[in-house]
Design a protein around this nucleic acid. Structure first.
Length: 234
DNA sequence: TGTATGACGATAT
DNA sequence: CATATCGCCATAC
């Protein structure tokens, strides 16, 4: 994965494009924050695009491509990640590949089949879930609404070892009354762990809920492992 | 278009 | 302090 500023994108367009064409995702940053990505399209993706362009508002962003998925063993279960040309799109802890496949297929409304992730994705995923490193790569949020997308992008900026309250996130988006909607967005986060919704807690001091398999107990363990809360709190 | 649904928050009891 | 109630807001259906 390669990060480029908007200035770099303007001044070295061809060179940056070569990076993307080589298969390495390029993430564009503005004011130092990732805001967009450049991803190479495979031939079959181009076919899908041409098809989508012919059809009436077809879903160019995901459904036309189909997705693949891979499993990452974790201390608390198998973590499965479905990914497409635009990056990871759906992730869950599941008891079996079959169970994950069903969930992912239903959410993405597209075929989800086993496959090997690109090296950068495998490495970034392992770094995120096992070493608490921020997942900086591009993510596919094609099926997330506009407000919830803003919420998820805000969550990505919470450093490991820190927490924010649902209300703080809402205020940060200029919607001080939308704490509950922020909670809903977290509950429906398609990329738990990669997008650290476990770092959002209640403003009354409680930890709040966690809908990923493992529930609030897992949320507490994750925050402890990251050093965000002490063992005493638990 | 209206209605129901939450990983919330503030307040009352 | 725990529980109940009501307001809040973006989605799903």
């Amino acid at each position: 994965m390669r990060l480029v500023s908007t200035a770099e994108l303007k001044n070295r367009t061809n060179e940056v494009l070569r990076t993307a064409l080589a298969g390495e995702p390029v993430v564009v940053t503005r004011h130092g924050r990732p805001v967009a990505s450049l991803v190479r399209l495979a031939d079959r993706d181009l076919d899908a695009l041409a098809q989508a362009r012919r059809g009436r508002h077809a879903d160019v962003s995901g459904a036309a491509f189909g997705y693949r998925y891979a499993a990452f063993p974790l201390p608390f279960g198998a973590f499965y990640v479905a990914f497409g040309p635009r990056g990871p799109a759906f992730a869950r802890i599941a008891t079996s590949a079959r169970a994950f496949e069903r969930e992912a297929t239903r959410y993405l409304a597209a075929p989800v089949t086993p496959g090997r992730p690109p090296r950068w994705l495998a490495e970034a995923t392992v770094a995120a879930v096992r070493r608490h490193e921020a997942f900086r790569g591009p993510v596919d949020l094609a099926r997330v609404g506009p407000f919830e997308r803003e919420v998820l992008e805000a969550l990505r900026r919470i450093p490991a070892g820190q927490v924010r309250t649902y209300r703080e996130i809402a205020c940060g988006l200029g919607e001080p009354g939308a704490a509950r909607a922020v909670g809903s967005a977290c509950a429906r986060n398609p990329l738990p762990l990669l997008i650290p919704c476990h770092r959002v807690v209640r403003s009354d001091g409680g930890l709040g809920g966690y809908s990923l398999r493992g529930g609030a107990g897992l949320k507490r363990r994750l925050l402890q492992a990251e050093g965000a809360i002490s063992a005493l709190f638990a």
